Amino acid sequence: MAIVAASGGVASASRTGGVTASTGRSSATAFDGSGMWIWYVNQSNGGSIPGIIARARAHKVRTVFVKSGDGTTYWPQFSQVVRPLQAGGLKVCGWQYVYGDRPGDEATVAAQAVKTGADCFVIDAEAQYEGKYSAAIKYMRKLRSKAGKHYPIGLAGFPYVDYHPSFPYSVFLGPGGAQFNVPQVYWKAIGYGVDTVMGHTYLWNRPYGRPIYPLGQLYQDPARSEIIRFRKYARAEGARGVSWWDWQEATNTGWKAVGDPLSAFHHGVVKDYATLSQGGGFFDLVLWAQEHLRGAGQSAPRTGVFDGATTRAVKKFQRSNGLKVNGRIDKPTWIALLRYPVARASAARLSAASSGHSMPRAKRYEIPPPALRH
C-alpha cells in the first residue's frame, strides 16, 4: 500500500454514531472540556477526595478518568471514589487496560465500572490487542450489551495508525464500538514537536470518522509552552475536549498550563486525510475503506489488502460520485465514502478478511509501554 498525504482544506461534516466526525461536535458529554487521568488514587493528592476536588476546580478540570480495571481484574479504588467525586461536582469516568486473552471477562470488568456509576468509560487497548479482531469484537459486543447502545465509550489507543496495521481500530471505532477517539498524543515521549505529532495523529485517525479528543502528556515534565500549544492545536482542530496523563506525575507547572487562559492560535491547521493506494500487505484502514466501498454498493474485496480489485472498486465509486478517477482513496474519496454506513463487524467476516494474510507486526512503537511511562 502506497501512502501519501491528502490535499488540504476543510474536513467533511458527515456524522458517524450520532456525532459530527470531522469537527468533533457532539452533545455535551464527560469527554468535553478538560480531563485528568488518575492511575493510582492514593498517589493523587495523597488520595484525599477534598484535595482532588479542590485541585481539579482550581485548574478548570471537569472530568477525572480513574482506573477501574486491568484485564480481568476490577480495581476497587473506582467504587470508593466515584460517588464522592461526583458529589463534588466532577464527572467521573472509568478506564481499563485490556489484553484480549479473555475478552468476555474483560468486558464484564468494564461493565462493573459502568454499573457503579461512571459517567463514561475508556478502553485502553494497545500492543496486546494487535491482530486480535475476534477478541475485539467479543469485548465490544459484550460491553455494549451491558452498558447500552448509547452509553459514552472512548478508545485510548496508539496515535499513529499507520504504525499499527493490524490493530483493530475498525472494530473498536466501528459500528457498535466507541463513539469517541482518544489517541495518546504523547509528543515528548514520541520525540517530535507538538505540531508534528498532532498533525500525524489527526491525518491517520480522521478517516475512522469518530470525534477526536486528544490525550496529552504531563508526565516527563513537558514545557509549559508545549502544553499550551497542544491545547491550542486541539482547539483549532475543533476538539471539544482534551485530557491529560496523568495526575500523579504532573508538576505544578503542568497543572498551571492545563488551566491557563488561551490566546489566539495564529498557525492554521490543515485538516487532511491520509491517502491510500495500491500495494502493501494487510492494513486495518484499507479494510475499513473496503467495508465502506461495499456499503456503497461496490464489489470490493474484504481482505484488508489494497489490491487490483480494490483499485477497480475505488475507480467505479469515484466515477459514480463525480470524483477524480485515480484509484486512490484520497481526501475527496474518504469524505464521500464516509457517507455510506458499514455493517457491524462479525468475527466470521473479519476472520475471512485476514485469512491468507499474516497479521503484520507494528512498524515500531511510537510511545513506550505503560510500565515505562514515568
Rank of each mutant, 00 (worst) to 15 (best):
S44F: 04
A6T: 02
V342K: 13
L90I: 03
Q278D: 05
G131F: 09
M1W: 11
F317H: 01
T201G: 13
D119F: 06
P211A: 07
G157C: 10
G71E: 09
D195S: 15
I52L: 14
P369T: 02
Y160D: 13
N181Y: 13
K142Y: 08
K331I: 09
G268P: 07
K331F: 01
V171Y: 06
R339N: 15
A362Q: 04
P183Q: 13
I212E: 12
K331S: 11
V109N: 04
G193N: 08
V41G: 00
I227S: 02
K67P: 01
T108F: 01
W37M: 11
F158N: 07
G157H: 08
R328D: 13
E237F: 10
S170V: 02
W187A: 08
K138P: 13
V161N: 14
K91S: 02
E366F: 11
W245N: 11
Y202L: 01
T72C: 04
M198I: 00
P214K: 15
A348C: 03
R102L: 06
R224F: 11
S354Y: 02
A345M: 15
T16W: 07
N252L: 12
V122D: 05
I3Y: 10
M359A: 07
V325C: 09
T303K: 05
A13F: 09
H266D: 15
A6V: 15
A58H: 08
K271F: 04
K363D: 09
G259R: 12
P183T: 14
G238V: 04
S355A: 01
Q248G: 03
Y219A: 06
S68Y: 01
D330F: 13
S68H: 14
A2I: 14
A147Y: 05
M198A: 00
S358A: 11
V270N: 08
N252G: 15
G199L: 01
T311D: 04
Y160N: 07
G8A: 01
I49D: 07
L337N: 06
R312K: 04
A189R: 11
I53T: 09
L155C: 12
V314T: 06
F230N: 03
